[in-house]
Design a binder for these strands. Structure first.
Lengths: 166, 166
DNA sequence: AATAAATGTTTGGTTAATATAACATTTATG
DNA sequence: CATAAATGTTATATTAACCAAACATTTATT
């Protein structure tokens, strides 16, 4: 029964931002949305009408804006994706926070469901598997440096890794 | 001196597809581009004019289409991104080929340069580091199964991993 | 409460990417 | 080589997402 009409990236962004504003201010206003998205308030009004038609927000002219249940579901999904992707980019791939945030903003719309799910499991596995975890991540970071020394420290690294099992 | 005007995703796709057609057929034709992109030929003609203005393709009405040097550079970059991302999705995250291809199609446009570069290094590191490599990937695949048994086989897995250093 | 300031809406553009369909050119075939 | 079929182009339209600026409403200030 779900109206699974695939939303545009732009409309998904509106919902995500409305959620953020709801969290911070209890309620979202046109001005705040416009500011957060860096667009004019007139453009926001049109988008809001569109979202209201799709029953994703509660909106009457000049009123505050809140998410409906289905709007909230999408907003939370987008936010979750954002957080996970940003975590992967910054914590695993060592991308700085600002860049990771920007890229997560775009990637959250482009990943299919299955791939996203696998990324979640992948991050968890990297963090928890005794063969990887922090030591391995450090080794990765080291390997990216211009003066990386190939696999010379492998023995030490591996035995350190074995320690974890005891 | 480079005209670094950021191309739209759509125009990047045209260049990538023209490259594929050049590889296969020596030359690209409007009809083939339209078919590959699933759009009408009239739309292709407009895009080609646009790309020609930007000096990214050689194009005269009714002629065959080839990439200029700068168009080729972009097309190759996009293709390389596509291949790398698809490899990551299918070989590491176990996404099936069709889905991996589709998702790579979108992700190739959304990843920033730095993040893409780190993914390249990350794949290489996973493949080559003695702590990861094939055995670890298998363990990851196993961990995704519904009947995964936590970390019970860790000792065996780790010692198998140590073997590689001898 | 009157009015100024802030906020929100409407109207009328613009642009990019597409579609459709009439028209033009090229290529293939009888 | 004349013409039919295939291919490519043009003209016109549509849609989504935006802007700018005029206009309307709400809120805050005196």
């Amino acid at each position: 029964m779900a109206q699974d009409k695939q939303l545009s990236e732009s409309l998904e962004d509106y919902l995500e931002i409305i959620l953020e504003l709801e969290k911070g201010n209890k309620v979202a206003r046109v001005k705040d949305i416009a500011e957060k998205m860096g667009i004019q308030s007139g453009s926001v009004t049109s988008a809001l009408k569109n979202l209201a038609e799709k029953k994703l927000i509660n909106y009457e002219p000049y009123s505050y804006i809140t998410l409906t249940e289905s709007g909230m579901a999408i907003a939370k999904e987008m936010n979750m994706r954002h957080v996970v992707i940003q975590d992967f980019l910054s914590r695993v791939l060592q991308i700085d926070e600002k860049q990771a945030d920007e890229t997560a903003c775009r990637m959250e719309h482009t990943l299919d469901k299955k791939s996203f799910g696998m990324i979640v499991q992948f991050i968890k596995f990297i963090d928890e598997c005794p063969r990887t975890g922090d030591g391995w991540k450090q080794a990765f970071i080291h390997s990216c440096k211009p003066d990386a020394d190939g696999w010379k420290k492998c023995k030490a690294c591996l035995s350190q890794c074995s320690e974890k099992l005891k």
